[in-house]
Design a protein around this nucleic acid. Structure first.
Lengths: 137, 137
DNA sequence: CGCAAACCTCCAGTTTCTAGAGATATGGGG
DNA sequence: CCCCATATCTCTAGAAACTGGAGGTTTGCG
């Protein structure tokens, strides 16, 4: 039996976040001690590790909820889980592409401050003037 | 003189967001008509375009505030603006790196569903079992 | 047994908007 | 000159996913 702090240390999920997940119905409410403190078992820990892992991968809580639901029904076909992951992959790829465009624009800005004054500053000027951008955003 | 809707169309910033920026002190409060509607001029439009551009580049409103402040003082040295942009570039590069790790893990998940049932599903299994990951996160 | 650390609940704040309700203003057509 | 659709006004609440604090109770070690 683990306390909420034990669970937090084992999974890397902060204590208030664990309570938040319980409140959101993602993590089953734990049993309590006589003094009303939560006590968890290994099943709770595994489920929380699953949630943490999925969150680290950028899944929304809504997607995590679906995934958890699926994992509780091993007899169902797994196309749906694959779909969720594929959707998430699309999102991640899109984010990467957009960030790379920003990166190129920002790196052109940085270190190009030759003038001593803001009036000549490339950073400020290129923010004020969208025509200086090569990419669209 | 532009109405708030004109300004919105010209800059691509939604109407409630313009009001929000005014409330946050990023955009100077516009003059009003007799009937209490906001009326903007070209200076407002340029400033809002600046904000929009910086937000698109991922700067926080706090950073935008600093940048705007700097751009209002052309006589100051521009090292600070360069620093802000450099910090942002670091953040963007870090995000890209982390997203690329996620991308490789997700792409290993997707399309590997050979079993028909969730019990055999790679997506679910790899979420439940962190040891299947090659990268750290 | 004493006491510090951990735990409890409840509520507010974070960030950056976005959306709705209910009321008023504007501007073009008849 | 009036009508009416559309735009605008203010105010408030909600979204997402937590995070932090206040004020009070429980645990467990020495």
């Amino acid at each position: 039996m683990y306390s909420i702090g034990d669970l937090s240390r084992q999974t890397g999920v902060k204590v208030p976040t664990i309570r938040y997940y319980e409140q959101m119905g993602l993590l089953e409410a734990a049993g309590r001690t006589e003094g009303n403190q939560r006590r968890y078992d290994a099943a709770h820990r595994d489920r929380l590790a699953f949630i943490k892992h999925a969150r680290d991968l950028g899944f929304t809580l809504e997607a995590v909820r679906e995934l958890l639901d699926l994992s509780g029904h091993p007899e169902r076909p797994c196309t749906h889980a694959d779909e969720i992951a594929a959707r998430q992959l699309d999102i991640v790829r899109d984010k990467i592409a957009r960030l790379q465009r920003l990166e190129s624009e920002l790196s052109r800005m940085v270190g190009t401050c030759h003038g001593d004054h803001v009036r000549d500053c490339y950073v400020i000027r290129s923010l004020a003037n969208h025509e200086m951008c090569s990419t669209d955003h």
